[in-house]
């Protein structure tokens, strides 16, 4: 866990990652709050808060008395959200560092090409 941000947002992100990479398939059951708390060694109230972010977002839904499940269509929506966030989280810091080192736009493009397309 990264100390600088609230743990519950990190739990939500971790579950989002699992949905995006397919570790948690759509319509499959999400671990219980207690399982999440014990696994990440965090307070269950924090785990609940993290999961509730995804419930509010519609990525996870609750079946009363049974548990929580990944909503269908959740993966695509999460991928879309992350793509929109990508420039802020990754491109801007990359450009800031490049400017600090005096790397030009052309050099940066060349580097991206050299490192390979994903």
């Amino acid at each position: 866990m990264d100390e600088s941000r609230p743990i519950f947002t990190q739990i939500a992100e971790q579950i989002e990652n699992d949905i995006i990479t397919g570790v948690m398939a759509e319509e499959s059951q999400v671990p219980s709050i207690n399982e999440i708390a014990v696994f990440y060694r965090i307070n269950p109230a924090t785990a609940l808060k993290g999961v509730n972010l995804l419930v509010d977002d519609g990525a996870i839904y609750k079946k009363r008395g049974i548990g929580m499940f990944v909503a269908s269509g959740a993966r695509e929506r999460l991928v879309q959200q992350r793509r929109e966030q990508f420039p802020v989280d990754f491109i801007r810091p990359l450009i800031a560092e490049a400017m600090k080192l005096g790397i030009t736009a052309d050099q940066l493009t060349a580097m991206l090409t050299k490192e390979g397309t994903p």
């Binding site: 100390e3 743990i7 207690n34 708390a37 014990v38 060694r41 965090i42 269950p44 109230a45």
Partner: peptide, 30 residues
């Protein structure tokens, strides 16, 4: 810490923990 958390999850109760090892317990506290 592990047993405390597991058992607290199963049997919720009020726990007051006094310690100097703040970093170790930080994530357990609400």
């Amino acid at each position: 810490y592990d047993r405390l958390l597991e058992d607290y999850a199963e049997h919720p109760r009020t726990i007051v923990l006094s310690t100097h090892l703040i970093d170790e317990v930080a994530n357990l506290l609400e």
